[in-house]
Design a protein around this nucleic acid. Structure first.
Length: 467
RNA sequence: GUCCCCUUCGUCUAGCCUGGCCCAGGACACCGCCCUUUCACGGCGGCGACACCGGUUCAAAUCCGGUAGGGGACGCCA
């Protein structure tokens, strides 16, 4: 075990979104690679907006992706006493003070400053007052050190420096006595002995304030790595209006966790020209220094390609299991129907998602109720009847049992009757599946079984004959 | 408005630190051809980028300066 300690600290105000998942993944990878510790911490200091449902959704997403944590989940809401203690310490040391300015006053000042083109920072009204208005509501502000600059060497972005003038006295405790985020993270990261903070790059601006806090409290300052944002197709921050952003939504759309993980790891990070990574390869090759500095656009097409890849490579039994819920969604029951493993095998090379696979699997369990008329119309009625009769005949006496065997049977038929393969294949495909887009007819017959195949051929024969 | 960050094909990116091997490589998407029993898979090929302007240098995607564009932050949210 190395000394490395990292954490993923989502706030439970919604589900786990892909951006958060990627941040979690980078943390996890680094911990795995270096034999460090990965900690999960729930940042629920905002009691108003945090919900149990969100916590569950986040844990569900993490588990589905396979991002297991070594410690936690810890909840900030359970550490309020600890935060209070440190607020008091800062107060006692004269490094924090009570501020009696009302939220309304502050908002007004902020707006005015913005209008006048000034930096909307706190003006320090209460910083030097010594009176303590009896019973008046107050917040506690951190007295930010002034002068000079605060700088840090970001593992991803390099050195970043802020003039201290830019940093104002941030509120560390609200009127209601609860601590605020920027204060809690520092206390938590310090008390959990986090050595490397990997988080979204929207936190860059918080970092100097947090560093001042670490220093004021006498804590060692961890290393920081700010991961660039994930954008939507219009290059704006990825949000619901760009499509799904929830990890679980991707699961429900039929994506495999390894595909999402592989996609996410390549968004912002690269290892030469490599595209496909197993978890082990990722762990072995991951290096935080190779994470890019610029934001990247989420591209569903590539995710789809990766998903198709993992479906193709996937273990059939596992895929069959994963496919089940997608089938029930379509009210398809596999009971008494073809072996799902056989079905999945015919579909692995043709589906980009499990949803698509389920769509394509339906006909195996529900015999066609209607046929693709346009496709059927391409053949003469007499020809169709001849094909169906010949095929039914052949199938009823064959000893073939697998796709290759059935394919051979169809080829023989072509030779005997002097038909071209498409003249047989297409009508049979329509008979068996209802349409023209389906696996090879040999494969279908194998999955369906001769009996059922014959039944379907006779059904379409009557249908055609009746017209 | 102020501060911080970013900028290579439509998209993800390699290369940039340690200038020449780059008239820029890979992948997705797209287009074409091949394979073929439909749809796919697969194979082959094509299209396609160093934001812009200056400077340094024998030589710049790579170093320096500026401009433009984009993003983020500025909350008693996290």
């Amino acid at each position: 075990m190395s000394e490395l300690r990292v954490r993923f600290a989502p706030s439970p105000t919604g589900y786990l979104h892909v951006g958060g998942a990627r941040t979690a993944l980078f943390n996890w990878l680094l911990a795995k690679k270096q034999g460090g510790t990965f900690i999960l911490r729930i940042e629920d200091t905002d009691v108003e907006r945090s919900t149990k449902e969100s916590v569950d959704a986040i844990l569900e997403g993490m588990k589905w992706l396979g991002l297991d944590w070594d410690e936690g989940p810890f909840y900030q809401s359970e550490c309020f006493d600890l935060y209070k203690e440190y607020v008091q310490k800062l107060l006692d040391d004269g490094k924090a003070y009570r501020c009696y300015c009302s939220a309304d006053e502050l908002n007004a000042k902020r707006e005015l400053a913005m209008q006048e083109g000034r930096k909307p920072k706190y003006d320090g009204t209460c910083r030097n007052r010594n009176d303590h208005p009896e019973g008046a509501p107050y917040v506690v502000r951190f007295a930010a050190p002034q002068g000079g600059e605060v700088a840090f060497d970001d593992l991803i972005k390099g050195r970043i420096a802020f003039p201290s003038e830019e940093l104002d006295d941030l509120i560390i405790q609200r009127t209601d006595g609860t601590p605020t985020y920027n204060f809690c993270v520092v206390i938590d990261d310090a008390s959990m002995r986090i050595t490397t903070v990997i988080r979204g790059d929207d936190h860059v601006n918080n970092t100097p304030r947090q560093i001042q806090l670490y220093q004021a409290l006498g804590f060692p300052v961890p290393q920081f790595a700010h991961v660039p944002m994930i954008l939507g197709s219009d290059k704006a921050r990825l949000s619901k209006r760009h499509g799904a952003t929830s990890v679980i939504a991707y699961r429900d759309m039929g994506f495999l966790p390894e595909a999402l993980i592989n996609y996410l790891v390549r968004l912002g990070w690269s290892h030469g020209d490599d595209e496909i990574f197993s978890m082990d390869e990722m762990i072995q090759k991951f290096d935080i220094n190779n994470v890019g500095r610029s934001a990247s656009v989420f591209n569903t097409e590539k995710l789809l390609w990766l998903n198709a890849h993992y479906i193709k490579q996937g273990d059939t039994e596992r895929l069959a299991d994963l496919l089940l819920p997608h089938l029930s969604k379509r009210e398809v029951t596999t009971l008494g129907g073809p072996d799902l493993m056989l079905v999945v095998n015919t579909l692995k090379e043709r589906a980009q998602t499990l949803e698509e696979m389920a769509d394509r699997a339906v006909f195996y369990y529900n015999a066609p109720q209607a046929y693709d008329e346009a496709a059927l119309a391409k053949f003469e009625k007499e020809h169709l009847l001849a094909v169906f009769e010949a095929v039914a005949e052949k199938l009823s006496v064959t000893s073939a049992v697998d796709a290759a065997g059935f394919d051979l049977l169809f080829k023989e038929l072509c030779t005997e009757k002097v038909w071209k393969m498409p003249q047989v294949g297409q009508p049979v495909r329509i008979a068996l599946s209802g349409g023209t887009q389906a696996p090879g007819i040999g494969e279908i017959v194998q999955a369906l079984g001769c009996q059922e195949a014959i039944r379907r051929i006779q059904a379409i024969r009557s249908f055609v004959a009746a017209r």
